[in-house]
Design a binder for these strands. Structure first.
Lengths: 226, 226
DNA sequence: CGGTTGTTTGAGGACGTTCAAGTACTGTGG
DNA sequence: CCACAGTACTTGAACGTCCTCAAACAACCG
């Protein structure tokens, strides 16, 4: 594990509030694995053996139906911890991972993590907050799926990326994957982009420009809350 | 607060593992409120002032789009704690509540709850598990919305209610509300029931009979994991 | 028993998917 | 640097699912 990795850990929301000693104890017995794009870390249904921290690269959590279509539930970036709930409860993963860009992953043995959790109050307190934050992201996604049309979901996603500002942003994901995350097919995503031209959204490839954020916000429909 | 309320608290997943003293301290300063069906506990966007425990009755968490259509995110029953994440983080509610059946609600002041959380390690540990369990329910709902058709979602919901067994079950919610929860209109729910007749589902009103659970399971498509 | 509300049914339409073809990227080897 | 393959993305047409609107029906309650 590199020095930069340790300093990354210290900046992560989950660990930032913890004394260095706890982090050391937590990652005792852990190791770093390098994974190529396309690799699969685990499959839905597997019993959790590790808690994962993404040190670099990109990862998607996906679910597959028996018919074979694949839905993307979430993306993770450098500095994200993922699938803590399965590890905490020692219950099978509900999703599979897919490495999108070559990644370095810190693997913390599940059993060890649960031990530390049982021992350390501060870690628990931070984890509560982490889970609560995450909970809100999932609620937002459910609201999105139930209340918005495909173009509105795209608009909301773009505004999220841009932080509500206008200007040019870079899509972090391939459009194919983005479509899955937004609950539509790549074709529908393409048409959704087409519709957003009327709302001042332009751009090719992974570069997208938001002309008028206020107009786009109005287009999404929804209270400020989101 | 009645004696039966206290014994209810002791049986709740969140509190079952905690010593009685902690529960007493936690509910210090809390009070019980009686609410009629149709009442609204809070609106999305409100700053959280209380953590709620449902002592009796039924409640729905809903979200409204600016156009006025209402989506149901979750139902809660006797013994459920709801919207902990907003209280934990002291961030505005993402949803509104709707009382479905006359309810008695234990209201724990948000500030007090956060204080206890900061003080008590055991409470934190239980809350982590509670949030993790809940997290999995939300993931299941997202998978449902992204991978299943309306009739499949209904079938999965019915199987959930019946615990995977056949036989007659009673729908706990009005069909109108159930439709919202499943992400469809009441009309579509009605037609979905119609389609499930071919899969051995019959019944009128709130009573539904599952003829062949195995067939229904096959109809839902999905791995065992759900 | 009428009024109110919730559920069902039908017809038409919008949104999104599927399937198929065409076009633009990206990276590799000449 | 260009030609080329391979992949991703876009576009078009036809279809299916689900929604909307409207009306009929059923259940509940005073």
């Amino acid at each position: 594990m590199r020095a930069e990795d340790r300093s990354l850990l210290k900046t992560m929301p989950l660990f930032a509030g913890l004394p260095a000693g706890i982090i050391d104890r937590l990652i005792y017995g852990s190791f770093v694995q390098n994974l190529p794009a396309g690799a699969v870390l685990f499959q839905q249904g597997d019993q959790p053996e590790f808690l994962y921290v993404l040190l670099s690269g990109r990862v998607a959590l996906t679910a597959r139906s028996t018919e074979g279509s694949e839905a993307v539930i979430e993306f993770f970036r450098r500095g994200d911890v993922f699938i803590a709930p399965a590890v905490i409860l020692d219950l099978p993963y509900l999703m599979s991972t897919r490495i999108l860009d070559d990644a370095r992953v810190l693997m913390i043995p599940a059993e060890h993590f649960r031990d530390q959790l049982a021992r350390d109050a501060a870690l628990n307190a931070e984890l509560v907050k982490e889970l609560a934050r995450h909970w809100r992201l999932l609620i937002r996604q459910i609201k999105d799926l139930k209340l918005r049309t495909a173009p509105q979901r795209l608009a909301a996603y773009l505004l999220d990326l841009s932080g509500g500002k206008g200007g040019t942003i870079k899509l972090p994901e391939e459009r194919r994957m983005l479509a899955g995350r937004l609950g539509m097919t790549p074709e529908s995503l393409s048409r959704a982009f087409g519709q957003l031209v009327a709302e001042g959204v332009t751009g090719r490839g992974s570069r997208v420009n938001i002309g008028d954020p206020t107009q786009l916000q109005r287009f999404c429909a929804f209270d400020r809350v989101l």
